[in-house]
Structure formats: C-alpha cells, structure tokens
Design a protein around this nucleic acid. Structure first.
Length: 740
RNA sequence: GGAGCCAUGGCUCAGUUGGUAGAGCGUCUCUUUUACACAGAGAAGGUCACAGGUUCGAGUCCUGUUGGCUCCACCA
C-alpha cells in the first residue's frame, strides 16, 4: 500500500490550523489588491465601492457581510478584470456625535461647554483614535480592498464636492430655507428626517377637555397655550353654526380667543369631532395653519421645556408640564372625562429613543420633485438592477412618496452648510456663543456688532429668521466679508455619503469605471443611501452610480432574532474568526441563506464550516501524498465521471455568481467537494491498484480556484503546500485564472 | 389603512421557468481503517400552515383563511 506509507512524506499538519496561516497569507496578498499590481490590470475594469462603515463603529456582525463584496471582487479578479474595491469611512454625523457625547457625559461635560470649532476638533481626535481598527478587522476577515485608496467623508476633496453640489443646487433654485415643522429631538439637540424617526405604540390618556362651547379630545393638553384655532370637519352638521366665529376659551392662564375653522383633515368620528389646532407643535396642525393663515405660537423651546408664554408652567419639561396642566385642569373643572385605554403611535428618536417633539425650526431643504424623476425612470428601466428583485418595487414605492429633504442638522460633527449670513442692524440673526472668559452668551447679533470677532470665535449656534425679513446670505466656502457670521447647521450625513460614488473615484476613472459595477449593502439603507446615490449621480453626472445593487438583511442570532446589546445576543465576528478562522465565518454567512433574507449566524454553523475547511485541507494532504507514491498516467473509468461532475460544477458556480446566488454556489461546491470528490472518487482511488491518475490533482486544483473567493485563506494555504503539483509553482492562488 | 415577504424534518433554513422533498446542526447505531473522529459507513425523522382552484401532475401558479415579520402612511 504505497499511498498509505507515503503520508509521512508531506509535512502538512493533520488538521488545518487557521492561526498558523491567515496573517502571513494576508500580507503576501496585499500588493494584489490594487489593479496596478495585478497582472489583470489590462483587463476590463470592474469596480465595487465599499459602503463606508461609521467612523465611530467597531466591527459588528453586519460588517462581516461585506464578505459578499469580497467574494465578487476576488472572483472578478480571477476572471481577469482590472478589479478594484474602494473602501472608506463615513463620519456619520449624528451617530458619531451621539457616541462622543456619551463619552463626554462620563467626564461630566456636554457639548454646551465648547464652541463648535473646538468641539468638532475634539470629535475628530476621538474618531482618529478609533479609525484603523476596523480596517484591521476587515483584514482579518480577508477583505481584499485597496486600502491605500480609502476615502473619509471629511477629506478635503469630499467637502469641496459637497460644497460644489450644494452651490449648484442653490444656484438652480433647488434649495430653499423655511420655517418648517420638523421632528426635533430635544435630547440630541437636532432635527431629524422622517426616516430617522421610529414609531412606537403607546398607551396615553386621551383627555376630553372643555373648550369654550365644545368638548374636545387631546393627548397633549400642555400644548393648549399654543392653540391658535379650533377645527371641525366642514360636513359636520353638529358644529356648522360655529364656523368662522371667534370663541372664548377658559384657559389656565386666563381666557383666550380662537377662531373656529372648518377643515377636511378633521375626522368627524374621532373624539368629539372637534380638534384644537396648535400649528407650532403638531405637523397636521402646522399644515392646517398654513391653509388658514393661522399664527404659529411656539410654547415649547428647543430645550424641551415650556417657554415664557406659559406662565407658571415655564421651565417645565413636557411630561412634567402635562401632569401639572392636567391636575390644574381638573381643579378648574375643565376635564370632562378621560379615556385611559387610548392607544396611538408616537415618534421617537431612532438614536436615543426619546419622544420627538414636532418643532418649528428654520431648515434648509432640497426640492426633490425634479431630482427624483430621473431616478424613478432609471429604476423602472433597470438601468440600476436590484437583487433580489422585490427591492425594485420597494425602491419605487419609496421614490413615489419621497418629498423635500430637510438637510440641516443642528450638530457640529459634520460638514458645515457653506452659507454666511450678513450682519445688519436688523433683529433677524440670533447667536449663542462662549465669550473670551468661556461664559455662555446669547442674543440678537446686531446688538453686539462690535464684538463679531469674539462671537465668531466662540460660536455655538446661529439662528436666522426665514423669509423676506431674514438676513441676506451668501453661499461660499470661505467667509465673504467682515460682517458675516457662518451658518452653524451641518449637512445630514446622507447628503455627503449620497455622493459616495462621486468622491471615491478619481477624475480620470469616470470614463472607465463609472457606472461602477456592483453595490452590495444592507437593505435597511436602501432609502437613506442607495436612493440618494442614484439621485446625485444622475443629477451631477447624468449617469447611474452602479449597475447592480445586491441587498442583504440584518445578521441575526441563532433564533433569527436581531442582535442587540440589550438582548445580550450579540456575536462578535472577530471572536468567531479567532476561534474557527475567517473562511469558516465567511461561508457560514452565505451557506443556506436566500438572497435578501436575514442571516442567522450560529456558532454551530461556523464550526461546521470550519470542518469543511479542514476537509479540504485533508483532501489536499491525500492528493499530496498520492503524488509522492505510485501513479498512473492512464485515465481510469472513474476519472470520466468526476471530470463530468467537475465541469458541471464550474458552470453552475459561475452562473450562480453571475446571478448573485451565493448560496447556490456555496452549496454546490460543498456537495461536490465533500460528497463526490472525497466520499466517492478519492475512496475509489484508494482502492485502485494502479494508484492515482493526474485527474486527482486536477480536480483538487480546480476546486481550490472555485472555492477561493469564498474561502481565500485555506485555499491559498493549500496552494502553497502543493507547489509540486502545479504548473507554475511560484504563482499565488489569488492571481490565478478562474476555471472555464 | 396601503405594500411586500414568510409559514418545508427537533433547531436554523435552501428548494431560479410546476414533474415522485434537500442541506447544515442535532439525534440513534456501528467503525478509532492507513487524508481527515473537525472523520467514515448507515439509520430515524416532513400528508411542504389550513381550505379551495388551475393542471396529466403543485412545496413551486391562482383565490381565500389563520399566524408571523418588514416597510410605508397615520386620527388630535
């Protein structure tokens, strides 16, 4: 039995130990991640842009799904494309500032202790400390991105692109500034786009309040001080006679008068069919106010406390104020009855989970009507294709209802909106700043005209009146003159990351690499990000940013439950890599997972895939040992069978990858390698008198190539071990050609 | 309220144009055989949620019911 004895002739370990190989292999690979080094640089360009992870983030299970991108880029590289995967980091304004402020809070400080410039620089330092770490983790997963090309969304070229885009939008009348009712998080101190608001089912008492001649239902009695009308449905015969009248209402701080209006927005069936209208603190009322020219009377400040228009309730936070107001209403006999069973949904901040306060705040908006048309067109015509298909419908659904985009964020960590307000003698500009002694000051800017330099140096926030009486402003990256103060709002993060395809590619690459080929990302950010990238690309380049979008869902735990810290079911992918190897984790993320569905990640599954890696290793050990023993050059009957199967496999894996059916590819390789090649063919070879034929090593070598995009480390490790079996012993697997 | 998706062996899930049910993990039996016990050989286990319909034939298409998920809209 020559084959058996010859086992000693290979020095391969009995089991594959990823710890011995992964680091060394990765270092040897790195030069090939950039197309200029690869021998394929003359091939057709193939480009993937990495969805930039947040600057504050360390690697979580979701990032491990970038494995998809890596599989594709490795496969294309082997196919001879000039392949590049461009990575980057997103400053993630709101997210990162939130995390940083939590750190600050531990030291007993808050953002209000700093001027915005200093605060910004502090966050920058904080982020710099973390950056690099996530790339190291990506490397542990084997990702073959061109790290030298990394782009950060606060890099100079990104900021200037963002400025340029904004200026152009402004010049073309697609930007406007308006008082608008936005969802405002008083805790985080910023307005939120609708997408950033989550809805929670709540049980709140519905108070039936006596209100002049009416009884009306409300869950927010504390906003009573901001009421500027009472509304009924125009068809409601019960109250017809009141319409147009001014009624007197007994309030808690004296009587006040409001007009009775008729509006279709009022449901006759809800409550008593009468509703109080508070344009400053309710989105529907705001709209109603616009239709009827009602006064916007703000009674809650941006700090979440009732203001001086509320008499004794001034300074109370909303919840506290509600309690007190209800008590006092009872005392005054103004509560008719209470429905304690009332359920409704309440908007909460996606970040801190506190109730958002609808608030009227000056905001910058992008008009999307004209911008979204071409996007809809492009999606409908499959100029951007979605995998799986159902996301096309979701995208179109969203685009249809997409409306003007509020891009102002009242946070410092981000790209400042490049606008400067002219300081005149008008009372239209209000500022908050730290004076030279570090003391907080605030007031109308015209009163401090002689101290502009000091204000600007210690500036925290500028608020400008909107409309015709507001200050003149100039859009400019740099200060346009002495009498100007900068806008302090920053852009919504998605405004800059939405231009990702435009800032990651070099100027001369737009001819060859644009549109890019594939965008692989989490389905959750389809609306936030993918839609905006398509929109900006079409607007600025008249071209879609990528041809294909492949979407996946969240990585979940064993039970299919979303991972979260509070549930304690978070799995750290790096732990799994350390324990079972990067290859095992990578295959576990695609094996048995349908496109677009959520990905249940269990340690058992990763272990199973580690076993598969070991199986491949041992197949190689066998082939290696067989090579040193007797063999025959003559094909044997079994060879035809395995060659047929192998050719079928090559075709099916290639086709599966073309269709982004990663599961199909992984499963068919697993099935072939383990249950056909090992269990059947190799067992037969063992029993042969003539020994092994060259087919044995041919099948192994082909399998290694097919498996490489999925399991790059173990395949490359074997590749180095079996040098004597190959035609070109010095060649690395990463640069070999894809089998055909 | 609108849209989409899902319900398949103990668990987690595959199943691309309709043609007699699959995987991984788990379970049971045997085997420490010499590539691998991170293994091999074998076994048990599913009327593919329910009710109709189309078809020669349906897990796969259509309708309805029940249960679950996601997105969107939203009544104070």
């Amino acid at each position: 039995m020559p084959i058996q004895r010859s086992v000693a002739m290979t020095d391969m370990d009995k089991n594959y130990d990823h710890r011995k190989h992964e680091r060394e292999i990765y270092e040897k690979w790195e030069p090939y991640f950039t197309p200029s080094f690869a021998k394929a640089s003359e091939g057709k360009p193939y480009t993937i842009l990495m969805p930039p992870p947040n600057a504050n983030a360390s690697l979580h299970a979701g990032h491990a799904m970038y494995t998809i991108d890596d599989i594709v880029i490795r496969w294309k590289r082997m196919q001879g494309f000039s392949s590049v995967w461009i990575p980057g980091i997103d400053h993630a304004g709101f997210e990162t500032q939130f995390v940083y402020e939590k750190e600050l809070a531990k030291k007993g400080k808050s953002r209000f202790d700093f001027d915005r410039q200093t605060f910004y620089e502090n966050v920058y330092k904080f982020v710099e400390k973390n950056s690099g770490l996530i790339y190291e983790q990506f490397k542990q997963l084997g990702f073959s991105a061109d790290w030298d090309r990394s782009v950060f969304t606060l890099d100079k070229n990104v900021i200037s692109q963002v400025f340029e885009t904004f200026s152009r939008l402004e010049r073309e009348g697609k930007v406007y500034r308006d008082e608008y009712i936005v969802n405002y998080c008083t805790h985080c101190g910023t307005s939120l786009a609708e997408l950033e608001v989550e809805h929670e089912e709540r049980n709140d008492p519905l108070y039936y309040m006596k209100y002049g001649p009416f009884v009306l239902a409300t869950v927010r009695p504390e906003t009573k001080f901001g009421d500027t009308a009472v509304a009924i449905n125009p068809k409601d015969t019960r109250y017809q006679k009141y319409v147009g009248q001014v009624i007197e209402v007994e309030g808690l701080i004296g009587k006040f008068r409001v007009k009775v209006i008729a509006d279709d927005a009022v449901e006759q069936k809800f409550g008593t069919g009468v509703v109080k209208v508070t344009p400053a603190h309710d989105p529907n009322d705001f709209e109603m106010g616009k239709r009827h020219g009602l006064e916007i009377k703000q009674v809650i400040g941006l700090d979440g406390k009732l203001n001086d228009k509320t008499g004794p309730y001034r300074g109370l936070k909303v919840n506290e104020a509600r309690k007190r107001v209800v008590e006092d209403l009872y005392k005054a006999g103004l509560i008719d009855r209470v429905d304690e069973t009332y359920k409704h949904s309440v908007g909460v901040c996606y970040r801190c989970k506190r109730t958002v306060e609808p608030m009227v705040v000056p905001n910058w908006f992008i008009k999307v009507d004209e911008l979204k048309g071409p996007v809809i067109e492009a999606v409908k015509n499959d100029r951007v294709k979605f995998y799986p298909k159902r996301f096309k419908k979701q995208m179109l659904n969203w685009l249809e209802i997409m409306h003007d985009w509020p891009i102002s964020r009242q946070i410092a960590w981000g790209i400042r909106i490049p606008v400067w307000y002219e300081v005149t003698d008008q009372a239209n500009l209000y500022a908050v700043w730290l004076d030279k002694n570090g003391q907080k000051q605030e007031g109308l800017v015209y009163k401090y005209k002689d101290r502009l330099a000091e204000i600007e140096a210690g500036l925290q926030k500028v608020t400008a009146v909107t409309g015709p009486s507001g200050p003149k402003y100039k859009v400019s990256a740099n200060k346009p003159g002495d009498n100007y103060l900068p806008e302090t709002d920053t852009f919504d993060t998605w405004f800059s990351s939405g231009q990702w395809p435009l800032v990651t590619l070099k100027k001369d690459e737009f001819d060859t690499r644009f549109p890019t080929d594939m965008m692989g990302t989490l389905a959750d950010i389809l609306k936030f990000w993918v839609s905006r990238m398509i929109m900006f690309s079409l607007y600025l380049k008249n071209e879609v940013p990528f041809k294909d979008v492949y979407l996946w869902s969240m990585v979940a735990d064993t039970k299919g439950v979303k991972m979260s810290k509070s549930k304690g079911n978070v799995v750290n992918p790096i732990d799994l890599v350390n324990k079972y190897g990067a290859d095992a984790l990578r295959v576990a993320l695609v094996y048995g997972v349908a496109p677009g569905s959520k990905i249940p990640l269990s340690e058992e599954k990763v272990r199973g895939m580690r076993n598969f890696a070991n199986k491949i290793w041992n197949i190689a050990r066998f082939v290696e040992s067989a090579n040193h023993s007797s063999q025959t050059a003559n094909p044997v009957e079994d060879d035809n069978w395995i060659m047929d199967e192998l050719n079928k496999l090559i075709k099916s894996v290639t086709v599966s990858l073309e269709k982004y059916r990663f599961n199909d590819a992984a499963e068919s390789m697993y099935e072939f390698v383990w249950h056909k090649f090992a269990d059947v063919y190799i067992e037969k070879v063992k029993g042969r008198k003539e020994g092994a034929s060259p087919t044995l090593r041919h099948v192994l070598i082909t399998c290694l190539k097919l498996l490489h995009p999925f399991m790059p480390f173990v395949t490359e490790a074997i590749w180095w071990e079996i040098k004597d079996l190959r035609k070109y012993p010095d060649e690395m697997l990463i640069t070999t050609a894809w089998p055909e």
